[in-house]
C-alpha cells in the first residue's frame, strides 16, 4: 500500500553500492559528499549555480540555486530525479554506506510538493463526491508518497499505487 519502503531504501541499492551496516554514514557526511559531487556536475555542465547542503536526523538535503537551471529540472522533474539518483549512487560509493538524500533545484520540489498536495486533496474530494476511483498520472516514489499522505488527511477515501516503474501511479478510491 505504502511507498514508504521504496523511499527509504531504494531497491537495487545493494547492487549499486556495497552497504556496510556497521558504520552508516551520518546525514552530515552524506550532505557534504553530495554537495561536493553536485558541485562537480554543475561545473562540468558549465552552469552558474550555488550548491548548498543541509541535513536533518535522517536525510541530507542538497539545494542548487542559480541562473537558467531549468535543464537540471526537466519535464516533470525527470532530469532532477536522474541527478538525485546519480548523486545517491556516487555518494554511496564514496562513503561505502547507505545514503538518504534529497536534491532540489530552484525550489522545484518544494513548489511541486505544495501543488501536489492541493491536487491530491481535490482528487480525493472528487472521488468522494462521485463514489468512484480515480487514477492519477505516473509519478516518482517521492511524489506518490506526498499524494498518499495528502489523501490520508481526507476521510472516506483511500489511495494505493499500481503498475510498474516508471509508470507506477496512484489510485484514489472512495471507501
Amino acid at each position: 500500500m505504502s511507498d514508504q519502503d521504496e523511499l527509504q531504501t531504494t531497491p537495487g541499492m545493494q547492487e549499486t553500492a556495497p552497504v556496510t551496516e556497521e558504520e552508516p554514514a551520518t546525514p552530515q557526511e552524506v550532505a557534504e559528499a553530495g554537495r561536493s559531487f553536485i558541485s562537480g556536475v554543475v561545473g562540468s555542465m558549465g552552469l552558474e549555480a550555488e550548491v548548498t547542503a543541509d541535513f536533518d536526523d535522517e536525510t541530507a538535503h542538497i539545494d542548487v540555486v542559480g541562473e537558467d537551471l531549468g535543464i537540471l529540472i526537466g519535464r516533470r522533474g525527470q532530469t532532477l530525479d536522474a541527478l538525485q539518483e546519480l548523486t545517491r549512487t556516487a555518494v554511496q560509493r564514496t562513503l561505502r554506506s547507505r545514503a538518504r538524500l534529497l536534491v532540489d533545484v530552484e525550489g522545484y520540489r518544494a513548489r511541486r510538493k505544495a501543488s501536489l498536495v492541493d491536487y491530491a486533496r481535490s482528487i480525493a474530494e472528487r472521488a468522494l463526491e462521485r463514489g468512484t476511483e480515480i487514477e492519477l498520472e505516473p509519478m516518482s516514489a517521492y511524489e506518490r508518497k506526498i499524494v498518499h499522505d495528502a489523501v490520508a488527511d481526507v476521510d472516506g477515501v483511500v489511495s494505493f499505487s499500481e503498475g510498474e516503474e516508471p509508470n507506477r501511479k496512484v489510485v484514489v478510491r472512495a471507501e
Binding site: G12, M45, I71, L72, T79, E85, L86
Partner: peptide, 24 residues
C-alpha cells in the same frame, strides 16, 4: 558493468537523461 546499468536500468537511464540535458 552492472553498476553503470543499475537495477532495471536505473543508472544508465539517469546517465542518459542528464547527458541529454547537458548537451542542450
Amino acid at each position: 558493468m552492472g553498476k553503470v546499468i543499475g537495477k532495471r536500468g536505473r543508472i544508465i537511464r539517469s546517465l542518459r537523461t542528464l547527458t541529454r540535458a547537458a548537451s542542450q
